[in-house]
Each structure stands twice: as structure tokens, then as C-alpha cells.
Design a protein around this nucleic acid. Sequence first.
DNA 1: GTTATACTGTACTGTGCAGTACAGTACAGT
DNA 2: ACTGTACTGTACTGCACAGTACAGTATAAC
Lengths: 190, 190
Amino acid sequence: MNQIDKKSRVSRDAWLQAGLDVLVTQGMEAVKIDHLARSLGVAKTGFYWHFKNRSALLDAMLDFWEREYTEVISGNQQIASLPPAARLEAISEMVDANRLTEYDLAIAHWARYDEEAARVLDEAYSVRMEFVSRAFRELGFRGEELEMRTRLFVCYHSNAAQMFGEKVTARDKRIRVLRNRLMIQELTKS
Amino acid sequence: MNQIDKKSRVSRDAWLQAGLDVLVTQGMEAVKIDHLARSLGVAKTGFYWHFKNRSALLDAMLDFWEREYTEVISGNQQIASLPPAARLEAISEMVDANRLTEYDLAIAHWARYDEEAARVLDEAYSVRMEFVSRAFRELGFRGEELEMRTRLFVCYHSNAAQMFGEKVTARDKRIRVLRNRLMIQELTKS
DNA sequence: GTTATACTGTACTGTGCAGTACAGTACAGT
DNA sequence: ACTGTACTGTACTGCACAGTACAGTATAAC
């Protein structure tokens, strides 16, 4: 028995992944144990072998998102070694190419009435702001102008995919170049 | 009996408003008839005098949002008569001052699994894009650059309040001025 | 004072879903 | 072959909530 198809039965990860899938498409309120069970083709009892209760799954989903995100953004050595402008460009590209903000809408909504979700979301936003702010700082921006650019960059990249769709055409790429050029350039006086 | 306290009992509007309040704070899934009834201090039966069922309330909420929004943005004559740069500035200010995007997160989330909500949200985004695009067009921007600025402006203003909080300090106002200055200035070559 | 309208509350049914009890089974290690 | 781990299904309880039945009440119009 090899590493790959080790589990023919429904593992903890399968439940977690099913939960995450529903989270993206319908939000956390739609994560129902028996629906997940049906979509996995098994009875729901097995769920309770892996998780104490529904809440434990939700915690695990939040944990997953937290870890997954911070890993990609701050744990990427190639990006960290780039000069600041290229670093910002690389983030733009990654957010477009991968679906890094796929869960954001659902989590932001969840955070409205769940303290732990709010904490995790806040933390994620802080990490993004920190990272982007450092790049703009290295480009020479300070004070309110630094804050302005950081917010603009983070806000756009955190939400654009949700608003303008997933497809990334050649035109979208040229627009991205223009956008980043605008964001890093000096303000003309008054 | 005067116009003002015409209704000492719970009117249709009161149910609608209660629903909208919950929509903002907890999302549409949390709009439960008996919860609304409890918060209004009455039994839930009266609800079914005003609305056929829960779904009818949800429709009414969506309708309300649609009408409320388009009225404020495109039906404002003072703003329409301003020159383009001042018009954009005025939108920025209004979005900051009033809570124009209060419902956006909940509706965007709702739109993930409800066709009608998706339609209404799409329409609202289109109205915003149209309006902003016209202003940038009058400022001389064209093609991909026009698209880039429009997306950036609309995306920021639709989401910033949700991400960075509601408070608008003097510092935030200065940042807003800088941001708008950046958005309307020409791109330097290469 | 009668009647229509606009509600009100009590009390019910039905459904969807969380969670549990319990008995069975497939497989891996010994 | 034996045993523990990791599941599986059937069958339940209990609760939250949508929606209904029905009878009562306050007000306004006639």
C-alpha cells in the first residue's frame, strides 16, 4: 500500500476539504454535517469520529485558512528576495493566478458574528498590510502617503477577484501593469 | 391621529427594517422570523399578515437595497453637476460619511448562492462602474487606463469601510485627498 | 353599534439538522 | 488467527425554525 491512495475511506482531511469547498461557494452557515456526508457518499456518523462536533470542524477550517495564507505570503523566500517594486508586482500576479482570496468573502462575513473568525481575519489583514507597507517603505514612501498606498494596494488585491471575476485575460495583465505603475509612482505636487 | 405615530402596532416597515438590521450584522441566513418577532416584542404570527413567507421578506430586503442605492448614487443632482474630479471626491466623501456600503458584504455573500441577489449586486456594481468611468473619461483617460482607474476606485470604495473600520478621523480625510490625487493623475512614462 | 381592516397571541404540525447509541466491518500490525 | 484502530450504517432523540389554524382585540368608517 503506497502513500498516495492510502485512504480509500473518508478521512479527516476529506471532511475538512468538503467543508472548505462549501465555505467558498455557500458560506459557513451552509456547512451542514449531513450535507457533507451526502456529498462524500457516506453516513454522517463518521464525521464524529474525526471531529468532536460541528464547531470543531469550523475551527479547523479557520485554522487551515490562517496557516495556508500566512505560509504563501510571508513564507515565500523567492518573493522576499526581490526588490520592492518587483515584490509588489509578484504579489499582484500571484493573487491573480492562484485563488488566494477565494475564502476572503466567506471569512469576512463569518467574522461579523464570530469572534474567533474576526481575530483570524484581522491577523491576516495585518500580515498583508505589514508586508505591503514594508515594500512601499523601501520605495521611499512615508507617513500618510505610505498608509494610503498600502491600504489601496491591500484593499484592491483582497477584493478585486470577488468583484470582477476570476478570468485573467491578456488585457487584465496589461491593466495590472498599469495599476502597479500608478501605485508606485510619486505624487505630483498639488 | 397624526402621521408620525400612526402605527403603534408592528407594521410591514418595522419587520423590513428589523430584517435589514440583522442582514448587516449577521447576514441573511440569520434572518429568522421568530427572532425578528422576539426583537420586536411580538409573536411571529403577525409577520405572515405582511409577508407571504420568509422568502418574500428577503425579496423585499433586496428590493430596498437596490432602490436605496441607485437613488443615492445616480439620483443626486448636486453631484452630477460637479466637474469630474470634484465628483469623484464627493463620492469618496459620501461613502466615508454615510454608510453606503454597509450592506455590501452581506449581499455579496448572499449573491454566492442566490441568483436574484447576484443579479441585483451585479446591477449595483454596474451602476457604480458606469458613474465612475464617466468621470475618469471626462478627465481624459481612455482604454485600459480608464478601466484600471475605474476598477481601482470602485473596488476601494466598495470595500474599504469593511476592511479598515468605520471611524473617519482627520488623518483619514487627509489620506483620502492624497488617494484621490493619485488616482486622477497622469501616469509617468515607463 | 355593526362591520371591515389590521393586527394580536396561543398552540399546533412538519422538517431539517446536530448529536448519540450501538452494532458491524476492513485493514494493519503483531 | 487475534486485536486495535479507523472507520461504516441504521436508528434514534432533541431542538430550532417555517408555516398554519384559529380565536381574540383595537381602531376607523359607516
